[in-house]
Amino acid sequence: MSGDFADRLAHRFADPGLLRQALTHRSLLQGRNRGLASNERLEFVGDRVLGLVIAEWLVERFPGEREGGLGRRLAHLVNQATLAAVARRIGLAEALIVPASEAATGVRKRATVLADACEALIGALYIDGGLDAARDFIRAHWAEEVEAVAEAPRDPKTALQEWAQGRGLALPAYRTVASEGPSHRPRFTVAVTVGEASAEASGVTKREAEKAAAAALLARLEGGA
C-alpha cells in the first residue's frame, strides 16, 4: 500500500489495517472469506455514509430547493461515474491492491472497481475516525461536483429518451447483461442502446444500473465520443 496515498488523505488511521482493507480488491483473495477480508463490507458502510453526508450538505447548500431537485442532485453525486471520477483525482487507482494478473488486465481503471473502492475508503474513514473524518473527506473531494451543476440534474433515463426523440431515433433499449453477488446484496449490470451507440453500468438494483448506464451513454453522446 502506498504511503504517499495515505498521506494525501488528511487522516491518520488509528487502525491502518482498515485502510489496507479498503484498498484490497476481492480478486486478491481466495476462498469463502474473501468477502470479509476484501473491501466489500467497508463499501457497504461507505455507501450509506456517503448518502447521508451528501444529503446533509445539499440541504445546507440549496436551502430553497424542493425534495425532487435535491433527490436528483443526490443521485448524481453518489452514482458510479462521480465516485470513479473522485477516485481517479485522488490517485486511488494506483493505490489499489490487486494481484499482478488482474493489474495486467487493467482492473484498476474500471469505473465499477474504482467506485466500490472509493465507497470502501469512506467506510474505513467512518469506522476509524467517525462521521467527522468521513465528512471532511467527502466535503474536500466532492466540492467540485456539488458546485458544478447550477440546476438540479435531470433523471438520466428521461434525458437520454429526450435526446433520442429529438433526433428521430428509437427509444433507448435496456438489457440486463449480468446479475451477481449474494441475494441480500446483488449487483446488476445493464446495457443501454440508442441507435448504434451503447454503454454499460452496474448498480445494486436494476433501476440504479439503468440510470447509471443512461448517464454514461448520454455523456458519451453529448461529448461526441
Rank of each mutant, 00 (worst) to 15 (best):
C118M: 13
I122T: 13
E151Y: 07
E43P: 00
V177M: 04
G35R: 09
A214F: 07
G51D: 05
T189S: 10
G91Y: 04
I54T: 09
G35M: 02
A199I: 10
P186K: 14
L58M: 05
E147I: 02
R139W: 14
A173M: 05
T82P: 01
A152D: 11
E144K: 14
D155N: 14
A216D: 07
E94M: 00
E144P: 00
V107K: 12
G168R: 07
F5V: 03
I127H: 02
G68D: 15
G71Q: 15
R73Y: 10
R73A: 06
A173S: 10
I138A: 04
E56M: 11
R8C: 03
R12G: 11
A81W: 03
A143L: 15
D47E: 15
A214E: 04
I97N: 02
G130E: 04
V177H: 02
R20T: 13
G181E: 09
L160Y: 03
Q161N: 01
Q21G: 06
E65T: 10
R135F: 06
E60F: 01
R175H: 11
T193K: 12
A152N: 08
L50T: 05
A124S: 13
R167K: 14
L96T: 09
P186Y: 03
A85Q: 12
G224Q: 06
A103C: 00
G17L: 07
A55M: 05
R20K: 13
V190E: 04
L23C: 10
E210Q: 13
L171K: 11
L18F: 08
A120Q: 05
E119N: 10
L74N: 11
H184A: 01
A55C: 06
A216K: 15
D4Q: 04
L29K: 06
L131E: 10
R26G: 07
H76T: 09
L74W: 05
H25S: 04
E180S: 12
P16E: 14
T24D: 02
A173Y: 03
G223A: 06
D47H: 15
A100N: 02
R61M: 15
R167S: 11
L131T: 01
L83N: 11
A14Y: 00
D15Y: 12
A216V: 07
E60Q: 11
E180R: 08
A212Q: 09
Q30Y: 04
V45W: 10
N33Y: 14
R73K: 04
A199W: 01
L131S: 00
R66H: 14
W142I: 04
M1I: 08
V98N: 06
T112R: 15
L171A: 14
E196T: 11
G3F: 03
P156A: 12
R26V: 15
E145R: 03
G130F: 10
E60P: 00
Q30F: 02
L28I: 01
R61Q: 14
T176L: 12
T158D: 11
G46E: 06
L50W: 04
I127A: 14
Q161M: 03
L19Y: 11
R135E: 15
F62P: 01
